[in-house]
Design a protein around this nucleic acid. Structure first.
Length: 615
RNA sequence: GGUCUCAUAGCUCAACCGGAUAGAGCAGCUGCCUUCUAAGCAGCAGGUUCCAGGUUCGAGUCCUGGUGGGAUCACCA
């Protein structure tokens, strides 16, 4: 039982003993005492003062006395404006530090026997990964790590969108313009190689469309052009899809390719396999750089036909209904979600059907209790509908479905748009950030004399932490702005700042080893400086925050926490000397540094960030 | 137009689900390296939390109504 729990239950008992009122322990509000006041924990007494019909301060004083009398560790209390501040003894905090030093699993919860699937990344195979994917990947990875720490068996999966019109466009362009080139022959990373042909297709299509617009005998157009309401450009933009489907030569080739693919045409399938293979090689390289991996990949080419049988089952249960044209729908009006198509009139699947089917297959594979989809917030509606359907279908994991919805990454100039070339490429960004780190390390750090491969490793870790921390510190739900020039910083609330604090703890450890400091001596340490006390108090919050982050699926909670610890350690570093003092003090501060280092490392690991030994 | 979502310092973000005087970082200014790594520390300055009401001991947080951004409302994925 933690102190906080103990305080809460004592408050409950106290309220009952003193005033004869029963309260729910959940309703007891405690928090860390703010810096301006003396105390460690604060209890809000307003609710009890209302029930007891006494003045808040009066209740506070009575409760304070009760708690000091009944909980050994609490040795003082004060009341300010209805807030009861409780102080724990120095001995308590010192013992707390000794306890976690002996607990190798501090902050890691016992297995709860539940399995959770985390789906993330899920790229299309027609172009390379970009900054948006990076946010997705970091969130997914981190969510999985946090859930693991909270006791779940977390499986990392993705659905690879490897089929459809987009990849066919790349295939057509490669046939038309490729002249047999390969990633190897052009010395290009596979995903970039394919992306190049996708862009080439789009460019050629645009040209074709333009020529057609200016040609003499245009057919009747489906949309009217009202010059008052739209510009010429907007007018043609509106017709783009229609043109692609009905008049474009390139469009026809791509569509033909798709039909052949669906008909299992041998040549088409083998070209498709080859081109996707190139893309996967490229993706793997990027994933490795980002330090992530997956337990299982699901491919849309396998799953896109799934789900139909489930729809049939649902039809029997009257969850779905069939229209006259034999398309199948679900009525979700009572959930304020409208009617939604789940099967086309020709009997083929739609996106929703696939997702239903895929969820089912995953349940056969893993029997998961929970599933987290890391997908951008533009799909909020889709997942609301999907989850509602799964609930009505009675899926056993329906209550464990969670959409980790995150906001887009914007540039200072506005949205990233692949069509306008304003996309930040993942590989470029990684490379840039490592280069920045190299310059910074050589300027500020003490790495110049290390062997070159160790230097490289440090540059990599520092650069990646700057990038990752910047992204993961923001609450996932919020849109965020990424300024390529300024965003990836190395000072202040950043990854490298936290790494720097860690490197200091590491240095302390090395010196302690050299000086043969005996950590047992720490137990005889007599004092406790404010910055030491504050640090230990924060260390004690770690498990609680891991749980909170797991519950909210929010890595930014951990990111903020790590920063907090690093900051307090930096303060401690400045306030307190570590070596060259009596052996008890030295031992205690070495032990404290060691624990700070341990927590920083495991906290940052939850965010997918590695710590360098030195920098 | 319906639905969802967001709005906090010049900029980028916090505020642990309603708690004390709204906090950090960056940018700006002032100090601190002969001593464990100054990627640091201490300090100054910066706010009508978009607006108007409401709920209550207490509202950035909840409710209503505005304003402004974004998303979504396909037999696309």
């Amino acid at each position: 039982m933690t102190v906080v729990d103990e305080i809460k239950s004592s408050v409950v008992k106290g309220v009952e003993d003193l005033y004869g009122i029963k309260v729910d322990p959940e309703k007891v509000i405690t928090s860390l005492t703010r810096k301006e006041f003396t105390g460690d924990y604060t209890v809000v007494v307003f609710p009890f003062s209302k029930m007891a019909k006494k003045k808040p301060d009066e209740v506070g004083v009575e409760m304070g006395k009760y708690l000091v009398d009944n909980i050994d560790q609490i040795n003082d209390s004060n009341v300010i404006k209805g807030f009861l501040n409780l102080s724990l003894s120095d001995t308590y905090w010192k013992n707390f530090l000794f306890n976690i030093a002996n607990d190798s699993k501090y902050g890691k919860f016992d297995k709860n026997g539940k399995t959770v699937l985390v789906e993330f990344s899920s790229p299309n195979t027609n172009k390379p990964l970009h900054l948006g994917h990076i946010r997705n990947i970091l969130l997914g990875w981190s969510a999985a790590k946090i859930l693991e720490a909270a006791g779940y068996d977390a499986k990392k999966v993705q659905i690879v969108n490897d089929r459809g019109i987009a990849i066919c466009k790349s295939m057509v362009a490669w046939q038309l313009f490729g002249e047999g080139a390969t990633p190897a022959s052009t010395n290009t990373k596979g995903d970039h190689f394919i992306g190049k042909y996708y862009v080439q297709f789009e460019t050629a299509f645009k040209e074709e469309y333009k020529t057609w617009q200016n040609s003499a005998d245009l057919p009747a157009l489906p949309f009217e052009h009202d010059p008052e309401k739209m510009t010429e450009d907007e007018f043609w933009k509106k017709h783009k899809n229609w043109y692609f489907n009905n008049h474009s030569k390139l469009g026809a080739s791509a569509k033909e390719m798709l039909l052949k693919w669906e008909a299992n045409d041998e040549a088409t399938r083998s070209l498709w396999k080859q081109m996707n293979g190139w893309v996967y090689e490229g993706f793997d390289e990027t994933y490795e750089k980002l330090g992530v991996n997956f337990d299982k990949l699901y491919f849309e080419s396998d799953t896109y036909i799934l789900g139909k049988d489930i729809i049939e089952e649902g039809l029997k249960k009257n969850i779905f209904y069939r229209k006259e044209d034999s398309s199948v729908w679900i009525d979700l009006e009572d959930a304020k979600l409208d009617h939604k198509l789940v099967l086309r009139s020709d009997g083929t699947s739609v996106y929703m059907t696939q997702d239903i089917g895929t969820a089912n297959v995953r349940h056969q594979d893993y029997g998961m209790d929970k599933m987290v989809y890391v997908v951008a917030d533009e799909q909020d509606y889709h997942f609301k509908v999907l989850f509602e359907i799964m609930k009505r279908m009675g899926a056993p994991y329906a209550d464990g479905l969670f959409h980790l919805s995150y906001g887009m990454v914007d540039l200072p100039t506005g949205k990233m748009k692949s069509r306008e070339g304003t996309v930040i490429d993942a590989d470029d960004l990684v490379k840039e950030v490592i280069e920045e780190a190299r310059l910074k390390c050589l300027e500020l750090g003490e790495v110049g004399n290390l062997p070159i491969d160790q230097q490289q490793e440090i540059f990599y870790k520092v650069g990646m932490s700057a990038l990752k921390y910047f992204i993961v510190k923001v609450n996932p739900k919020k849109r965020m702005v990424f300024d390529p020039k300024e965003s990836v910083d190395f000072q202040g609330q950043t990854g490298p700042y936290i790494q720097y604090a860690f490197v200091r703890t590491n240095g302390v450890g090395n010196t302690a080893k050299k000086d043969e400091v005996n950590l047992e001596d720490a137990k005889a340490y007599k004092g406790l400086e404010p910055s030491e006390r504050e640090l230990i108090l924060q260390l004690s919050e770690y498990p609680h925050l891991v749980q909170l982050a797991a519950k909210e699926l929010d890595p930014s909670i951990i990111a903020a926490y790590c920063y907090n610890i690093a900051k307090l350690y930096s303060k401690f570093w400045n306030d307190c000397k570590i070596f060259g003092l009596d052996k008890e003090t030295v031992a205690f501060r070495v032990l404290l540094s060691q624990q700070v280092g341990t927590i920083l490392k495991s906290g940052m690991e939850l965010l997918g960030i590695e710590m360098p030994e030195q920098m």
